[in-house]
Design a protein around this nucleic acid. Structure first.
Lengths: 199, 199, 199, 199
DNA sequence: AATGAATGAGCCTTCATTCAT
DNA sequence: AATGAATGAAGGCTCATTCAT
């Protein structure tokens, strides 16, 4: 399978059952609103059974966030890999961000909203990860501006606006919504293009 | 004081000390991550002293969210009140949303992120409130499109994208940042204009 | 009004409003199940307003129990005062006990059930009071047996059985029940006579 | 072991340690006067250790009351089972009631005095249970009256008086008292016989 | 005489976590 | 590998009581 298509493909998430259970619970009630017993119950495990897989509640959040961010980073890199023109790179990266927040809804949402519940060290790693993705889009926009393609000279602000929009998609998108996934993507990309402007 | 300028003015937030303390704590650690003792300590009160003012932890969150949403709604209505052309209405509403999320940062953030921690009834009220604001922007965009001013036919999607962006500002804006407040507003309005497009 | 009829007469209880409120609450929920706020609310007083009348919650219970026991003792003495024959003394004393537990239902019940919630000193006084009444009936029965009127040689056991029965009346008697008060009294006296036996 | 003697036999109560601890505490200080910490301490458990066995303080009371009432009901039925004549049935039932309140002193006392601390549903069940026992004695007395054995036509009132007396025994009986257990029983049965009268 | 505000101590319950079996 | 039993710490909340006004 070519790397150029990989980043668009979303198989049903295949998390270990503990992480899957934790993901659902964290998405619904937040990290602090979820007890280890809630997770164990959802995973159909006894509490000590759960500790067999993970050393602590924090450890579960870390595993989850790490998995999500790795997935996102890998896909973003793949999305950029095969594109050459700034416009192409921009379009693909935005599409990648949007798709990720559509098809990895809960995971993306939990990572974004529960990052603050991470212990300092892990939070730093998360932030670094986020920043890496943010840097990709900032750079693409700056390049596009330098290349006379994008109007906005505020690459960083525009980049932040665009990632914010993409993250927001995780809050409302449902697979069974009125629009097809591709149409949702198309519109979001169009909005993002509007943010950077044409020259 | 003219109603037309009111919505731009942000005096230092003047919450009762308990609500102020709760606001800071919720903003930093979330509703479930904050204990009633944390709030009492920050408010320099004993725990029962706190219960003298509020019947429960949930009650505090409700008071907070209600205050925020009333403030936001009132300002948005004021922002629209004196404007007539679609473009003007759009610009003012976006400016209003952005300013609110800049100068009522914590409150806006807490309302948005802890709505899920509200009891069902209060959550419904919050959602209704949110929807009222959302309807304002959707309508302005739809009007602008009908009037040949805005390019996008996707009023609802664009509206959602724009409020998402505005909410996002609450996550990073700091009064002591590099840009002046007015410059931040200017750029965000420009991005929002890009989302709906010119015709 | 002659002392000989006094002990049969029960005007509507005329307790100070705080004691009355406390009485109802203690009767319904017990001393430990009642909060000072419950009492204040029922008495339509603020909490400090209540402390204006009584130094403590315990103080209220003491006032209540003391009042009840004084009333009971006085009535029992009055009931015995005008009677001469053992049978007469027995009948009147039993009638007095029964009536008291009918018409001072809550008070008698609270005194009996919450004596254990009294501080040691007050508890001792209560017990002494109870014992005084108990001694009256025991003595009457013993006299009756010595005089060849009552069959039972177990004055103390019979006395205890009879007071127990009388106290029990407070648990079920209602002024609006099927039987007239006098009929209830008549039957209870008959049972008591059965306990001591005829000779 | 013959069913006919079973109901007279009282082995040392063999409650689970938590229930046993709760029983002693409730007997001494009442339900509301007892804290979960008191129970845990007496049971030599930590507080959460206690919650491993029971879901709540109320749950403990329910378990206790249910156990007591089942025991009482079973014994009363057994006591009646082998008797045929009204007098025999009466004697045995009274003996059974008295013995129960002697040898299950605390439990019987707690059930009777803390029924009001039960949640409404459980209270209803308790009352139903009590009523079942009450109905047994009422019926026996009524039968005896109909059969010309007992004088009293007031079966229900007499029944109530007798159960009241029996319950009262729980308040004062001590195994190390002056009288033998059998003598206590004998006297109480004699009193009860007096209440219903001979014909 | 009466009240709003306040508190130390304690309430029942649940937390994340561990350990013997 | 899996579970029942256990715990120190902390959760939200209420207690009886006091004091400034």
């Amino acid at each position: 399978m070519g790397a150029s298509t990989d980043w668009r493909e979303y198989l049903p998430e295949d998390l270990p059952k503990v992480l899957d259970a934790a993901l659902q619970e964290f998405a619904e009630n937040g990290y602090h609103g979820t007890s280890i017993r809630d997770i164990a119950a959802r995973a159909k495990l006894s509490v000590p059974g759960l500790y067999h897989y993970h050393a602590s509640k924090q450890d579960i959040l870390v595993a989850l966030v790490t998995t999500v961010m790795n997935d996102l980073t890998t896909r973003c890199e793949a999305a950029l890999a095969t594109a050459t023109t700034p416009q192409d790179r921009f379009d693909r990266l935005v599409e990648c961000l949007v798709r990720f927040h559509m098809f990895r809804r809960e995971a993306a949402f939990v990572a974004a909203s529960e990052a603050r519940s991470l212990d300092p060290d892990q939070r730093r790693e998360y932030v670094a990860s986020r920043n890496r993705v943010q840097a990709m889009i900032d750079e693409v926009i700056a390049d596009g501006h330098a290349g006379g393609v994008f109007a906005t000279p505020y690459a960083k602000d525009a980049g932040r606006a665009i990632t914010t929009m993409a993250i927001g998609v995780a809050s409302w998108y449902r697979a069974d919504g009125a629009l097809s996934a591709d149409e949702v993507v198309r519109r979001q990309v169009e909005f993002a293009r509007g943010v950077v402007g044409r020259r």
